[in-house]
Amino acid sequence: MRGPKRIAEGSVATFLFGCVAFSPPFLAIFGAEVFVFGLPLLYLYLFAVWGLIIVLVAWIADLGSASRPDQNDKPLTGRTR
């Protein structure tokens, strides 16, 4: 039962993180005219956060395959017998 719950929690947390990171206030902060390694800060920030979210999703989805996420899917008849 641990696996699916962890996936749900991880997914929601990642989603909320994305919502906050791409919210207008943060974009305004990172929209400063600053260059890091010759790249505009905003450009770097957007792609870095995006990449991080993708890594998190991959990691969470992998949790699922390790811990049988489909326990709920057993037909009820099978369990009661």
Partner: peptide, 13 residues
């Protein structure tokens, strides 16, 4: 393109 990424974060739901 960020929107679809966020939807896919919630793929389990």
């Amino acid at each position: 393109y960020i929107g679809p990424t966020l939807t896919f974060v919630l793929w389990g739901f």
